[in-house]
């Protein structure tokens, strides 16, 4: 077995482009899924029961599906049902957003629920309005619970973006596997792919640990 690592520097440009798309997918998904997650979390608490029920269905459905299936579904089914056609990038983005919105809404919901009722009652007893109590008392405390979970979700999302490679989005995984099948330098390209993911993902995982330590609440 002879290894020829020169294929890796030779493909540096393509790999870098793939890595950029991976990062862009992560950032854009989070940018959409955080606000959407908040909205869905609030909808689930809605006093209008059908809305709350629909929001719950949405969350339970997407939390309990493999992401790769959601990606396929978005690619094959969504265009037919909605009569819209998106580029693979946007299709992948939609799939990741659906999934992460569901996760984030659970994070926000449990974050808000974790604040003891006594805290709201104390604020109301001081004469604050419900809105004030939520903004000034509940949110700042809930934030400490939410942030570490969001950090973990971020790292998971970064890795999950690799799954959109199955619908030919030109992300890092797809790019590396394309070069592998053209050049037949299997070990070299797959190892390079793993190494690049590691280089990008490792600091993120460590950052998430740090956020857990700094903001995490231990019971």
């Amino acid at each position: 077995m002879t290894l020829d690592w020169s294929i890796v520097p030779a493909s540096a440009g393509a790999l870098a482009h793939g890595a950029l798309i991976t990062i862009a997918l992560t950032v854009l998904t989070m940018a959409v899924a955080v606000p959407c997650g908040i909205v869905v979390a609030l909808l689930r608490e809605s006093r209008f029961k059908p809305i709350a029920f629909l929001a719950t269905c949405f969350v339970e459905l997407f939390r309990n599906l493999p992401i790769i299936l959601v990606v396929y579904w978005a690619f094959y089914v969504m265009p037919v049902v909605l009569d819209l056609s998106f580029s693979p990038f946007v299709t992948g983005l939609v799939a990741l957003c659906l999934n992460n919105t569901a996760y984030n809404s659970e994070t926000f919901r449990s974050g808000i629920r974790s604040i003891r009722k006594g805290q709201t009652e104390a604020a109301l007893a001081m004469g604050m309005s419900e809105g004030q109590a939520f903004r000034k008392i509940v949110l700042p405390q809930a934030w400490r619970r939410v942030l570490p979970v969001l950090a973990t979700t971020w790292v998971t999302l970064f890795k999950d973006t690799s799954l959109v490679s199955v619908i030919a989005v030109g992300d890092l995984a797809h790019t590396a596997m394309q070069i592998r099948s053209q050049s037949f330098r299997v070990i070299e390209m797959l190892t390079a792919m793993a190494a690049i993911y590691w280089l990008l993902g490792y600091p993120q995982a460590k950052l998430a640990d740090w956020i857990h330590k700094k903001f995490g609440v231990t019971e």
Partner: peptide
């Protein structure tokens, strides 16, 4: 920590395609 940083897909593909050659 490495497993927390690398996607499952990458591990899977590496084991299936690269591991037998190596």
């Amino acid at each position: 920590d490495s497993m927390r940083a690398i996607p499952v897909l990458v591990v899977l593909v590496w084991f299936y395609f690269a591991f037998p050659i190596a």
